[in-house]
């Protein structure tokens, strides 16, 4: 036989007593205790009644949109996995052809002009490849026009009310020359202030095209602590690592030591510091 149960021992058994999940021997010992301990008997009965009533509180149900949103993002995630890792988001964004005919026309026109300006590639950073001096002035002018067109489309889309339209705006940012500072500042503003986390994540990805810009690098370093979403913070840190931005180290060090910041982000910052050594 074990020695009689104390009130302290009993404390750890109430929860299972109420839910009827005590083992047989424990139950016998517990019942023996409450039979001779008035205080614990009171708790077992009174609190037990509350425990049972808790179950009667109606469950609050999520709205019907939750399921649809989940299946949408699962599909997007799978699509992203099937494409090459770095390009996935971009490809996915490219698939978002504008719904409005006006935009479709503008883009079609832009694509037509691209066709005329033979040899020009629809690739981020392509503008950097050909040294500026070697272009004929005609082609340079044409490129300028294409750039303006894309910029106009992208900047307007970034101002739209709906997150979907803004996502499209980000997708066009991939087609703007990396030297376009207006586009760069629009993307940075999106990263820092867009209310939708998916739009912010997409904008971080689009910033990769501006990798050579010191303005962009500095802005990204400063943006991390302004973000409220750990996912965005992690993306920003990854971007700095991919760019081998060693100037980010002091800020990463602060982030790693900042108790206010999400633990996973802090860990990530630590790993990033190692990589940027």
């Amino acid at each position: 036989m074990t020695s009689p149960m104390s009130c302290d021992d009993a404390k750890g058994l109430f929860a299972e007593y109420w839910s009827g999940s005590l083992g047989e021997r424990e139950e016998i010992a517990f019942e023996a205790h409450i039979a001779q301990c008035e205080a614990c008997r009171r708790d077992a009965d009174q609190l037990g009644a509350l425990w049972r009533n808790l179950e009667l509180i109606p469950a609050e149900e999520p709205g019907p949109g939750v399921r649809a949103r989940f299946y949408d993002s699962l599909a997007a995630f799978r699509q992203g996995m099937e494409s090459a890792p770095k390009r996935s988001l971009r490809d996915r964004l490219m698939a978002l052809w504008p719904a409005q005919p006006a935009w479709q026309m503008a883009i079609s026109f832009a694509l037509l002009v691209i066709g005329v300006g033979a040899g020009y590639e629809l690739r981020p950073g392509a503008a950097k490849i050909a040294p500026d001096g070697q272009e004929s002035s005609q082609i340079a002018q044409l490129r300028g026009e294409i750039g303006n067109m894309r910029q106009m489309v992208a900047l307007s889309l970034l101002q739209q009310q709906s997150a979907g339209e803004r996502l499209r705006g980000v997708s066009y940012a991939y087609q703007v020359p990396a030297s376009d500072t207006q586009m760069l500042s629009a993307l940075l503003a999106t990263v820092n202030t867009d209310p939708n986390v998916n739009v912010r994540l997409a904008a971080v990805d689009a910033l990769r095209a501006f990798g050579s810009s010191p303005v962009m690098r500095t802005a990204v370093i400063q943006s991390i602590r302004k973000q409220d979403q750990p996912m965005v913070q992690i993306e920003l840190i990854d971007l700095l690592v991919d760019l081998h931005e060693t100037d980010a180290r002091p800020e990463l060090e602060k982030i790693a030591a900042d108790g206010q910041i999400n633990e996973a982000v802090r860990e990530h910052a630590k790993v990033a510091m190692e990589k940027l050594r």
Partner: peptide, 8 residues
């Protein structure tokens, strides 16, 4: 388990 009891 003890914390459940205290919470109750």
């Amino acid at each position: 388990k003890v914390r459940v009891f205290r919470a109750m």
